[in-house]
């Protein structure tokens, strides 16, 4: 698989480390009333999508940026690559 890095261009997927579902960006609020349940779901439960999935890849052998890659888990086709930073900012986070 080739990941088209927004800053560095096409890079071999072997340069990256995979974390999983991009929803892992959204860590639950530790202070909420149901924090224990929220963290259980955050840590352990997964949608495990068959089809287009947004996922986190870390460019460990490169510029060490986190990317949000939209990839089809049935075909391995990559349709979109974004910097995770931009995705988080678009959601209203400061970093």
């Amino acid at each position: 698989m080739i990941i088209d890095h927004p800053l560095l261009g096409p890079r071999d997927a072997a340069e990256f480390v995979y974390l999983g579902d991009a929803s892992l960006i959204n860590r639950p609020d530790y202070d909420a009333d149901n924090a224990a349940q929220d963290f259980y779901e955050y840590l352990y439960l997964r949608d495990n999508i068959a089809g287009e999935m947004r996922e986190l890849w870390y460019h460990e052998q490169g510029d060490r940026s986190w990317l949000v890659v939209t990839r089809n888990t049935l075909t391995h086709e990559i349709s979109k690559v974004e910097l995770a930073r931009d995705v988080a900012r678009a959601q209203g986070r400061d970093r």
Binding site: M1, A13, D21, M53, E55, R71, T73, L74, T75, H76
Partner: peptide, 11 residues
């Protein structure tokens, strides 16, 4: 990485 394809990659 997550996949349902019954094939892997070269690395």
């Amino acid at each position: 990485y997550n996949t349902y394809a019954q094939r892997g990659n070269l690395p």
